[in-house]
Write a protein that binds this DNA or RNA. Structure first.
Lengths: 124, 124
DNA sequence: ATAACTGTTATAATATACATATAACAGTTG
DNA sequence: CAACTGTTATATGTATATTATAACAGTTAT
């Protein structure tokens, strides 16, 4: 798994790590029960503090993405696929909501948004 | 104009003020050349420091939304409609980008997003 | 000119979040 | 026991956000 972090990002480092791992899990690049890099190992690779990685892992565990076992390491949690999907749909709806608000308040047409969506969809 | 701020928000107070005023300007609730609440007045109303309001106003001026005149107060800038529109389209594209990323990483179909969009569009 | 509004600037103090380094402690495995 | 794991505590540094205070400066109406 490749994790790339940036000091100059507006996102804190622990947050960048969280997102990279979440993404890897959701995209199935990291599979159920697969071991994650050890806290100490990842810290060394990224040349950051152990505590920063631990914070990321702790929050990922709290959110149900991974499990950590003292002395052994961390692994991808048996995930509730439905729950993950729901979470993501909710996130998407949140963004759509914001888009619609902007459009309505300043007469941006549905057509414009849809075109932009088509374009960005094909782009990735 | 109603501005509501929250201490417990993840957003800093000055940012909340900026967004509230931007929104009011974009939606034409605050019209061109209309006076904004005075820095001191708003600070008193919201029971926050003058400096916090000033920071919000300073950045709004930097971004071209308002003009401030020493001794007189602040007013909504004669807005460059094109520029505002561009900014909003950019913001929308940012959201679409995030949506597409989520979809691609976990096989959520274009159709699902479009349906959600249609629904939320009609809803508002 | 003065009073009562405006914004400006500078300073100091406090709080919080993020990140670091270090060290000691504890579980697992070969 | 050695060499990996994670855990906890402590201290430190830095940046950002926010506050309070005070002195300064422009505008306007009386």
């Amino acid at each position: 798994m490749d994790i790339i972090i940036s000091n100059s990002s507006n996102q804190p480092i622990f947050e960048q790590i969280k997102q990279a791992i979440k993404k890897a899990i959701v995209s199935n690049e990291l599979k159920e029960n697969e071991m994650l890099p050890s806290i100490r190992g990842l810290a060394q690779d990224l040349r950051i503090s152990v505590m920063t990685v631990k914070k990321a892992y702790d929050e990922l565990e709290q959110e149900g993405f991974i499990k950590t076992i003292h002395g052994k390491g961390s692994l991808v949690a048996a995930k509730n696929i439905e729950l993950l999907r729901e979470e993501q749909l909710k996130e998407i709806e949140g963004y759509i909501d914001k888009i619609v608000l902007i459009c309505k308040s300043s007469n941006i047409s549905k057509k414009e948004v849809l075109e932009s969506f088509e374009y960005l969809w094909e782009d990735k």
